[in-house]
Amino acid sequence: MNELIFFFNKVIVAGSVIGSIYAMGAIGVTLVFAILRFAHFAHADLMTLGAFFSYILVVAFPELGGFVGLPTGFVVLPVAMVLTAIFAIGLDKTFYKPLRDKNVKPVVIVIASVGVTLMIQGVIRLFAGTTSRNFFSVDGVAGKDIFRIKLPFEAASRKIFITEPQILLFIFLILAVGLLHYFLTRTRLGKAMRAMSDNPDLARVSGINTNVVVWTTWIIAGGLAAAAGTLLSMDVILKPDLSFNILLPIFAAAIVGGVGQPYGAIAGGFVVGFAETLSVFNWAILLRPFRDSIPEWIELPSKIAFVPTEYKIIVPFVLLIAILVWKPTGIFKGKVL
């Protein structure tokens, strides 16, 4: 029983947390892919930047959380999302749109986005150095609440662990996905976004204002990136190189889900997240209860993990390659660019 709870904590909770983060990043990447037709390499650094916006706001108004009884980082999140969205539109106007207007090959814009990612990294480290920061040590009100849930079984002495930021993350993700679904299927602009993803030339011919659609894309992508970055840093810690280990998994999630498919991106995010936690999990622990019933000549190793933790980056890559080889359209039948 305790082993199962350990599994639940290490795989189900941890996988859902990181899966939600990847999903939010991958939605942005997949929408930019769909509307602007390029792989946005600066997306992970948009997450870091959004998290820093939140952090600065928390430092500036540390008491804000006290009014509603939530961590201040979560309360200021909407402002950080707006700031990041504006920043993303600014990026597009300064760096990507001039290249689009010149009708360059898409790959040139991809290169420009790497240039942008290096610039964001440089600026963040210039102002923030390389030290890690904790949201809750600057929060004037709340510490990080950790819930320990005891299951009503005799055999279960271990508890289920879940933190306040994790619960807020799940609630936020559910709300965000619901809103996104409503936006894409019920509103005029959301439908126009799907239309432009389907057929950009016809969208123009129909009189759809493509600039507005592009801005909307950046608002959604930037806002979700800020939320993902902030919620991840609240749960763990805010590091200037936060983006480093996230870029490849969110690309993998977007492609596994099917490029251009927001729902696919969500599924892809969880697939990648759970694949990571499942492959670094030590399966030997689950075999321990059966120790006595296994014949003696089989020696149980103390550690059976598919991938050592330090090689975790391999997991999204393998998934990415597997999907490119067997099903390039992804699970949700996206585009193959």
Binding site: F95, L99, I111, V114, G115, L118, I120, Q121, G122, L126
Partner: peptide, 17 residues
Amino acid sequence: LQMRVFVIGLTITLVLR
């Protein structure tokens, strides 16, 4: 020294444009 990373990025975007 991190500023040099910024300069690489800026150079790339400026040259491309």
